[in-house]
Simulated scan of single mutants.
Amino acid sequence: MGHIYDKDFIQKELPMTKQEIRAISIAKLQLKDDSILIDVGAGTGTIGIEGATYLRNGMVYSIEKEEKGIETLKENIKRFNLENIEVVVGRAPEAIPEISYDRMFIGGSTGSMRSILDHFKKYAKAEGRIVINAITLETLADATKLLRELNFKNIEVVNVVVSRGKNIGPYTMMYGENPIYIITADKEETK
């Protein structure tokens, strides 16, 4: 299936990773056909759901603690008729399965970034890759500091700003979305 447009998702009141940010975040994950992706703070499920469409032999575990998020997430999974994605209700890292996996996306950590990264270091395969999306400078600073402290490799930060054109009479006016920091790191050094 590949890339999915925002309009195709059920959103309700929850924030959603916008399609341009989602495209870059999924590209940064470098998913393989058989990747096991842990989607932390899944919300409406946009990253996990779009990621699942790339995984013919892989699996997505979407971790979400908010009741309205869980409901919307399940509706979106049903909408796209995906069988390789499982909703895990609870807070990360406690709710993350204790299995070997190779990819993790963090869209929200509710103050548990260190313990989530510790889980990744313990259970992710040697070629494990993590992508963190941050809206606030505090999350950016906290995440990059922790990634260095925990000896992650190939740490990269990309700042993405997207503007959308809206028609104002005969003119098009650009309206900016929130800037997003996309942080990527590997568990081990890659060649």
Rank of each mutant, 00 (worst) to 15 (best):
F105L: 10
E83N: 14
F105H: 09
K125H: 09
V89H: 02
S25P: 05
G58H: 03
A92Q: 06
Y54F: 15
Y61P: 03
I36M: 03
K78F: 05
K28M: 14
T53E: 12
I70K: 00
I85V: 11
R22V: 10
E127V: 07
I85C: 01
A141W: 04
K125A: 13
Y123K: 04
I47K: 03
R148E: 15
S112C: 12
A27P: 01
S25M: 08
S62A: 15
P93F: 06
T139G: 00
E98C: 03
R114D: 13
N81L: 10
S109V: 15
L29S: 03
R148F: 13
V60Q: 00
K65E: 14
T46D: 03
G90L: 13
K145V: 14
A52Q: 12
V88E: 01
A124Q: 04
I26R: 02
A52I: 13
G45S: 10
N76A: 03
T72V: 15
T44N: 03
T110D: 10
K78I: 11
I106Y: 06
I49P: 00
S109A: 15
D39I: 09
D39G: 02
S112R: 14
I70G: 00
G90N: 06
K68C: 04
L29M: 04
A92N: 05
N84Q: 13
L29D: 11
D118C: 05
R148P: 01
S35Q: 08
G41A: 12
E50G: 04
P97E: 10
